[in-house]
């Protein structure tokens, strides 16, 4: 199927701002789905609330736009009740790790076969630029006019620590790599977390002297490095991209099948 066959083109142009990384992330995700040759009727996309959560409106899958932070809980019910479905969950940083933090760590722990795509723009965009648990210190936001002093979560360490069997970080500058990571994340049997560094020019870039989308992508180019690369070794300040964990571990729905067998045998 062509890319156009996976989208609800009547709703374009989309709601996201000029140069928003989320559009590029959607672009990469659609190409990953296309590469995998998935039937849109076999895909459910579940989202919460926020800029990222508008993604389901644009894809021609089964789509469920839920409550702030709760997407993974809804998705767990969907996957557990019909395990043959491919379940994709785009989330924002607040959605995934502030209000939804509890659901996030438990989804990781269960290792249920869902792909969580954390679109990290380090800000609450939809509500107008408040700081998030991924903003980190030294960021100016509408709720941090004197700058933030809150430390940020490291999504990769959190996901791995909580038990996700696949965790990877990409960026919307490194688009080919991002598509490849998404293909791996979706194909992976188990809970996959993929963090996408996704610029928000409107609310983050503007307030933090990072400029427009072009300048923010240049920043990602200059300030990230491949995991295990020489650049990353030489400069620990760089944000690393790549696969942080890729383990084969018992998947939750498959484990339940064993329980069903056990219960049937009495």
């Amino acid at each position: 199927m062509a890319l156009q066959d996976y989208i609800r083109s009547r709703f374009f142009p989309h709601i996201w701002c000029v140069g928003c990384g989320h559009g590029t992330a959607l672009n990469a995700l659609l190409r990953a789905v296309e590469t995998l040759g998935l039937d849109p009727s076999d895909i459910v996309m579940v989202s919460g609330i926020g800029c990222s959560s508008r993604m389901p409106g644009y894809v021609d899958f089964h789509t469920l736009h839920t409550l702030h932070g709760r997407a993974l809980a809804f998705a767990t019910g969907t996957k557990m009740s019909k395990p043959e479905l491919t379940v994709l969950v785009p989330m924002g940083d607040g959605d995934a790790l502030a209000i939804g933090g509890n659901h996030f760590i438990h989804a990781c722990r269960r290792n249920i076969d869902i792909t969580a795509i954390v679109l990290n723009n380090r800000i609450y965009g939809m509500t107008g630029g408040q700081f998030s648990p991924l903003s980190g210190p030294g960021v100016v936001a509408t709720t941090a006019p004197y700058s933030t002093y809150d430390p940020a979560f490291d999504v990769m360490r959190l996901a791995v620590g909580a038990g996700a069997s696949f965790a990877a970080r990409g960026s919307t500058y490194h688009v080919v790599e991002l598509q490849q990571l998404l293909v791996k994340a979706i194909s992976h049997k188990g809970f996959s977390v993929i963090e996408v560094l996704s610029p928000c020019p409107t609310h983050f870039g503007r307030r933090n002297q990072q400029g427009d989308s072009v300048e923010m992508l240049e920043w990602l180019k200059a300030n990230t490095a491949k995991l295990g690369s020489k650049a990353a070794e030489e400069n620990p300040e760089l944000i690393t991209r790549g696969i942080f964990v890729e383990d084969e571990r018992p998947e939750y729905c498959e484990q339940y099948e064993r329980i069903l067998e056990q219960a049937r045998e009495g």
């Binding site: 469920l64 019910g77 969907t78 438990h106």
Partner: peptide, 21 residues
């Protein structure tokens, strides 16, 4: 299918997700 969730919010969310299938 039976599922123990992490809290009541997740429990109701999960059954909604399952009702839709």
């Amino acid at each position: 299918r039976f599922l123990q969730m992490e809290d009541e919010i997740a429990s109701l969310a999960a059954i909604i997700g399952a009702s839709l299938t």
